[in-house]
Design a protein around this nucleic acid. Structure first.
Lengths: 151, 151
DNA sequence: TGGATATTTATGGGATAGCATGGGTTTTGG
DNA sequence: CCAAAACCCATGCTATCCCATAAATATCCA
């Protein structure tokens, strides 16, 4: 299972290409599809990124919603309907579609934020605010990691 | 499970490299990823160090949250997004990123402090102050070890 | 036990390969 | 036939590899 860690800031060139961090590519080396899957975040001006194989896990979790429920439909529409599959070029780059770049407010510096089994892409400047917010939430709500059951 | 004990002080060279104490490396010899994971301590001017497998454990626990939930997002952003993955070189060293060194105030002498399943990296001088403080707390508040349940 | 020899560790520095980035060229498809 | 996308090659920088040394530790054998 891929595990994405740390934050890498890479430049978007005028063709819309960005290097996917080498560390992230390593985590994806065993994947059948050599590339990433992206869609708009539901909560932030950012993009959610996954390994192709993880989309199956998302599908499985969506089935936990009531079939035909409004929520299931909405999620499925945004997640599957609007996701894009981006293949690496020979240098490990992907081309960010313009509409996704605009959605995330990515200008020139794209920040890849590792979040475990997924990652996010932020505009580098915008990310700082998000960071402070996340830190505050963790502290104020006293969020901790439950021991839970192994998945 | 790795068990980090005692304190080792090693030098940071001008390339930013430090030898990870051999005792610590021994504890990590069974790890799939040969290296360490670091992030900023929330409580001290120091860095927290873990084995890769420990991050996998955290990742598993995060999977118990709903996908895209705010809690999952906040935790992952602070824990995974702000961590770095550092591989050993042939001599068992890692390169400390400059921003992390600055955060911990590490100048030249890095102190590796074993804390059980994790360890901390302090500036050697700063650590002395922390030590006296910790001793005083234990004495004044009469801290003891609870029997507790095994984790 | 003791003293000589071999390993391991921490450290230093030069050589090398990999990564991020840029630009040109061919291919594709509408 | 033209534009956009995929492919290919070039480059500077940095991280990684590799070798060397000294000190500390461990090992061995008489």
């Amino acid at each position: 299972m891929a595990l994405f860690l740390s934050t890498h800031i890479n430049k978007v060139d005028k063709k819309g290409r960005v290097s996917v961090p080498a560390q992230f590519r390593d985590q994806l080396s065993a994947e059948a599809f050599q590339g990433i899957v992206l869609f708009r975040s539901h909560a932030h001006p950012a993009l959610e990124g996954f390994a192709w194989s993880y989309m199956e896990e998302i599908s499985r979790r969506l089935e936990n919603f009531d079939l035909f429920s409004a929520e299931q439909d909405d999620l499925a529409t945004t997640v599957f309907g609007e996701s894009v599959q981006l293949a690496f070029d020979g240098e490990g780059r992907v081309v960010l579609p313009v509409d996704l770049m605009q959605f995330a407010g990515v200008v020139e510096q794209a920040a890849f934020v590792g979040l475990g089994n997924k990652f996010q892409i932020w505009d580098a400047a915008e990310l700082e605010k998000r960071r402070t917010e996340a830190r505050r939430n963790v502290r104020d709500k006293n969020l901790t990691l439950p021991k839970g059951e192994a998945a």
